[in-house]
Nucleic acid binder design. Structure first.
Lengths: 259, 259
DNA sequence: GAGTGGTCTAGACCACAGA
DNA sequence: CTGTGGTCTAGACCACTCG
């Protein structure tokens, strides 16, 4: 025998077991799981090991822990963010007013909601650099959104727009109207022609843990979305933060001749 | 006082401290860190807590643990994978022969290398479905690659090509020649016109933990890359697996009129 | 006040790698 | 053989939430 299995650690085996039950439907979404103590008794180990198993599942986003106990996460499927088509007008109108996000959530049979706030603020240095505005003064309008699906927070997004463009326009209002901010920018003479998105995965900040109701050892996508006009000037920078266990991202593009 | 800080857990504080030293350069890449026992003594706690701190850093990909101790990871920067431009001919030739990957790694001053193998194999069901081949027989050519940067494994990729297209061609060979498999497919009358990439983040499988030399609680990007011809037929499916702590992804695309 | 998870302590045994 | 991390045990105290 060439392969001697190194023995599956107890906490991993327990996690595997519970994971199967969740994916198999034995534990439905929203169900309360056994407490750490109960689980420890059931599997004949101590609380520390049971806790380790649950922590593993929580870090994967399968379960949600609170002071009241551990529960199967209410959203088990992944939401698709089709980045390429979500800014196309026809697509945005499918889901009505608030745009691409609503369509994405309704597509799963969930109910979207969101809270938006706007501020005038000093932008992060890298954003100021991109937008060509002053990094040391209040030079941008920030549109901050928190989005939910069936009351589960699923995304945070902050858009930065140069105040010299956005000040006093409908972009300052909570509802930017049909087509959203991209349409308003276009009307103001700043139609976007090229989009770039850069994606990283990292651990959430304490604020994100709070706002997205997640565990510190989960991960988020940080998507830096940059909109540029025909002449190459960046007129919008949006930072999207999404728990990785809730989303799939999709991109499509045409490929020119390869030879 | 409205905000009473809930006290930073010891293991998090220790992790913060070590993280700072790594990012600040006090601990250079490749340096050996204190052992769990030493660390515990230094901070006046026990081994379990020190281990918890190091485990946190390892899960972030900042350090690498082995039986010989914990070391600062040899690659601290993130490698940029510019998905949109990496398949453009001009870009691929910058880095020479093996294509986009070489350019990405050399751009960071690292030395790329890779190992490739090819097999005839039965494809996963979803791949068979996309390619329109039989899921229950040996219907695809699989090109399996393991890529390294300065001897650190950084990516696994498996390409599936329909055997009816690839059998007996240069696509079966280890080196597919200038321009890579996309160019060979084009020469065979299957030029790709539309690319789709779908991205998820998940925990690595045991095989990936082994092949990528990572910890079980780190994360990988799984990128499903699909190449379609002008008439919409999928002729190539490649699954890329990349540790999230080593890569940034970038996509760009033109935006049509928004109003 | 009782239940629950978050964290810490102070031990223990094991497998594996290097000397 | 020795040092190291991987894991487990069996306790403990705390803060928060609920009834």
């Amino acid at each position: 025998m060439k392969e001697d299995e190194p023995r599956r650690a107890t906490f991993r085996a327990v996690a595997d077991e519970v994971r199967e039950r969740i994916k198999g439907g034995t534990y439905a979404p929203g169900t309360k799981l056994p407490t750490e103590g109960e689980l420890a008794d059931q599997i004949g180990t101590n609380r520390g090991t049971a806790a380790q198993a649950l922590r593993l599942l929580a870090s994967e986003g399968l379960i949600h822990k609170s002071r009241r106990g551990a529960f199967v996460h209410r959203i088990v499927t992944k939401i698709l963010r089709d980045s390429t088509s979500r800014y196309v007008r026809a697509r945005r109108e499918e889901g009505q007013a608030r745009g691409a996000f609503e369509a994405e959530i309704r597509g799963l049979g969930l109910t979207p909601s969101s809270v938006t706030a706007t501020h005038h603020m000093q932008p992060p240095a890298w954003v100021a650099d991109l937008l060509g505005v002053d990094a040391n003064s209040v030079s941008t309008l920030a549109r901050v959104r928190r989005m939910l699906a069936d009351d589960v927070p699923v995304q945070l997004a902050t858009s930065y727009l140069p105040l010299e463009i956005a000040a006093g326009t409908r972009l300052e209002e909570i509802d930017t109207g049909p087509g959203g901010s991209k349409s308003r920018l276009a009307e103001l003479g700043h139609a976007q022609a090229l989009i770039t998105e850069e994606i990283e995965v990292r651990t959430p900040t304490p604020e994100e843990v709070e706002a997205l109701d997640m565990a510190e050892d989960q991960r988020v996508f940080e998507i830096a979305h940059i909109g540029r006009t025909e002449d190459g000037r960046a007129v919008e920078v949006t930072v999207h933060v999404l728990p990785t266990h809730l989303w799939r991202l999709s991109y499509s593009w045409p490929l020119g001749p390869t030879h």
